[in-house]
């Protein structure tokens, strides 16, 4: 039987200020042979309330690196601000943009330096490596990271990642006779997957929706980008990488 008194005397209930919250949303990134696609929805929420329908979660760091940040948005904003600051200092010191693999290591160091009061954010970094390959790095809040071909994170990770595993890695699919699965998907297929992933996540997860922002980073001379509706070129670097921005509406209910 539930005894009110005994519960009441279990000592002082802790009523400590909780410095964290979750702001919903989902991000993902997929690497191709010579491109990288990084995307996120634009809804920001707390509990059952939508705070805003447009709060970007995907940020261009350099001419060849894009970072998606998901979790506690105040930490996310501060973290991106600090990463950008470090990259600016790097430019001043070395007169070039930091390579992707180094940005990835930098992010690990910055996250782990807050091991005992973590930034409550999941990061996915996408871009073009020095060798011209498309890359995706994913991180946990305290800095554990690895290079992957594709990754989803955030509220609908559990919905999107299995879909990606199936469609990008061909998990649980068997190749037909004399057929084989490609190691890398072409850009148009990837973009279709991204849009489908988010429309589906929007259907099934209340914290996902409103708008979709997709960044595409292309290797120099890559012809991967096809004429696609509403594609907008953001930057071209001296080394020839190009960054494109695509926006799509998602359902707002």
């Amino acid at each position: 039987m539930f005894d009110v008194q005994s519960v009441a005397h279990q000592g002082p209930q802790s009523r400590q200020f909780n410095p964290y919250t979750e702001n919903g949303g989902t991000i993902l990134a997929i690497a191709g042979a010579d491109f990288s696609v990084i995307a996120g929805d634009t809804r920001q929420s707390e509990g059952y309330s939508i705070q805003t329908r447009y709060a970007p979660k995907v940020f261009q760091l350099t001419d060849k690196a894009v970072l998606a940040v998901n979790g506690f948005s105040a930490d996310g904003k501060m973290f991106v601000k600090k990463v950008k600051q470090r990259l600016e200092w790097y430019r001043h010191a070395h007169a070039k943009d930091m390579p992707i693999r180094s940005i990835a290591r930098l992010i690990q160091t910055m996250l782990y330096s807050r091991r005992f009061f973590p930034y409550y954010v999941y990061n996915i970094l996408g871009g073009i490596e020095d060798d011209g390959t498309g890359s995706v790095y994913s991180f946990d809040p305290v800095g554990s990271y690895e290079r992957e071909a594709c990754r989803a994170a955030g509220a609908a990770q559990s919905l999107v990642q299995p879909f990606l595993d199936n469609q990008v890695y061909y998990k649980n699919q068997t190749a037909g006779q004399d057929e084989s699965f490609p190691t890398h998907l072409p850009l148009p297929s990837v973009l279709k997957l991204v849009v489908d992933a988010f429309t589906s996540a929007t259907e099934r997860h209340i914290e996902v929706g409103d708008g979709l922002e997709i960044y595409v980073v292309l290797k120099r001379d890559s012809t991967a980008i096809q004429s696609m509706e509403g594609v907008q070129e953001v930057t071209t670097s001296e080394e020839g990488q190009r960054v494109f921005y695509i926006r799509r509406e998602l359902k707002k209910d």
Binding site: P19, Y20, T21, N23, Q44, E46, Q51, T52, R53, Y54, A55, F72, S73, A74, K77, M78
Partner: peptide, 12 residues
């Protein structure tokens, strides 16, 4: 725009 005790911000 909004800001609260957690530092959470947004515009709408």
């Amino acid at each position: 725009a909004y800001v609260d005790l957690l530092g959470t911000t947004y515009k709408a």
